[in-house]
C-alpha cells in the first residue's frame, strides 16, 4: 500500500484516503488527547438522541418525575399512540415527497451545475451569483406568494404540488453546489473529450455523472435532511390527513396550551424518534460511499 503513495508512481491508481494504513508507530500522548477530545464531543452529540430515546420509552408521569434518567421500566405505549395517530401513513407520505424532491433536486442540480461549468451562455457568471443570492434569501416571509404559485397551478393538496415546492426550495443550493463541484474538476478531463468533438450529452453521461457520484451523495444528504423535517409548507399544501407528512403528524400530537397538565414530550419524542430513524439508517448505509472518496484524481 505504501508503494502506491510515493511521488514517482505514474500508474493511475485510486487515491487512498489520507494517511490510512500507515500506522505502525505506537501512539503518542498527543494522539491520546486528541482521541479523548473527539470522543468527548461524540458523547455530547450522541446524548440528545439517547435522551430522545429514553423519553419516548417513559410514560408522561415517569418523564416528569425523572427527566434525565433511564426509563425503568420502559414502555412502548407512546409508540403505540403515535402509530395509531396516523404516523404510519405520514411516514410514507414523507418518504414519497421528500424522496422525490431530493432525487429531482440532485438530477436537475447536476444538469444545471454542468451547464454552468461546461456550457457557455450569456450572463453566465451573473446568473450564478444571482442563484447564490437567491439561496441566501429566506422563504419565511415569502410564504403567501409561494403558496399562491402552487395554488394557481392547481397543485394544492397534491403530491406533485408539494414535491415541486420542495424542489423549488432546494434547487438553488443544488445547482450552486454542483456548479462549484464541476468547476473544480481538472479541465484536462473534459478537454480531451471536447477535442474529440464529443457532444455535450456524451460528456455529461460518460464523464461528468460518474465523476459527480460523491457530490450526488453529499447534495442528496443535505437536501434530504433539509426537507425531511420541513413543517410549514407541508402544513400549508397538504390538508388531507391521509396525505400529511411526518413532521405535521408529530406536531399535531402536541396538545394545545389549554391543557398544560398533559406533558406531551414523551409522545412527541416517540414520534420524533421514528422520524429520525430513516435519515439515521440512510446515514449508516451511505457512510461507506462518503468514506470511499472519489476517483477524480485519475490524473496526477
Amino acid at each position: 500500500m505504501t508503494a502506491l503513495l510515493t511521488p514517482d508512481t505514474a500508474v493511475e491508481e485510486p487515491i487512498q484516503p489520507h494517511g490510512r494504513g500507515r500506522r505502525r508507530r505506537p501512539w503518542s500522548p498527543t494522539r491520546w488527547v486528541v482521541v479523548a477530545v473527539c470522543a468527548a464531543i461524540a458523547v455530547s452529540t450522541i446524548y440528545p438522541f439517547v435522551f430522545m430515546a429514553f423519553t419516548s420509552l417513559k410514560t408522561s408521569r415517569d418523564y416528569v418525575d425523572n427527566k434525565l434518567g433511564l426509563p425503568i421500566p420502559p414502555t412502548f405505549e407512546n409508540f403505540v399512540t403515535a402509530l395509531t395517530g396516523n404516523l404510519g401513513v405520514s411516514f410514507v407520505n414523507s418518504v414519497i415527497t421528500v424522496g422525490a424532491g431530493t432525487i429531482l433536486t440532485v438530477i436537475l442540480g447536476c444538469m444545471g451545475g454542468f451547464a454552468f461549468a461546461f456550457l457557455r451562455f450569456p450572463f453566465r457568471a451573473g446568473l450564478l451569483r444571482l442563484i447564490m443570492i437567491i439561496m441566501v434569501l429566506p422563504v419565511t416571509v415569502l410564504i403567501p406568494p409561494i403558496f399562491k404559485v402552487i395554488l394557481d397551478l392547481g397543485l394544492v393538496n397534491t403530491y406533485p404540488g408539494l414535491i415541486l415546492l420542495y424542489v423549488g426550495l432546494s434547487i438553488p443550493a443544488g445547482v450552486y453546489m454542483m456548479a462549484t463541484f464541476f468547476m473544480a474538476v481538472p479541465k484536462e478531463l473534459v478537454e480531451s473529450a471536447r477535442i474529440d468533438g464529443a457532444s455535450p450529452f456524451r460528456v455529461f453521461f460518460n464523464i461528468a455523472v460518474p465523476l459527480a457520484r460523491p457530490a450526488f451523495i453529499t447534495l442528496g444528504t443535505f437536501t434530504f435532511l433539509g426537507l425531511w423535517n420541513e413543517l410549514l409548507f407541508a402544513l400549508l399544501i397538504m390538508s388531507s390527513p391521509e396525505q400529511r407528512t411526518l413532521p405535521v403528524a408529530i406536531t399535531l400530537l402536541r396538545q394545545s396550551v389549554q391543557n398544560p397538565t398533559l406533558v406531551q414530550d414523551a409522545i412527541i419524542s416517540a414520534g420524533l424518534l421514528m422520524s429520525a430513524a430513516l435519515p439515521f439508517l440512510l446515514f449508516v448505509l451511505f457512510n461507506r460511499q462518503i468514506t470511499q472518496g472519489m476517483v477524480a484524481g485519475a490524473l496526477k
Binding site: 456550457l119 442563484i131 437567491i134 434569501l137 415569502l142 423549488g168 434547487i171 438553488p172 445547482v175
Partner: peptide, 19 residues
Amino acid sequence: FLGPSLLIIALLRVWPVIQ
C-alpha cells in the same frame, strides 16, 4: 440542461421575491 432548474427557480423563488 439549464431550462428546468431555471424555470423552477424563476417560478418559486424569483417571482415570489418580486411580489
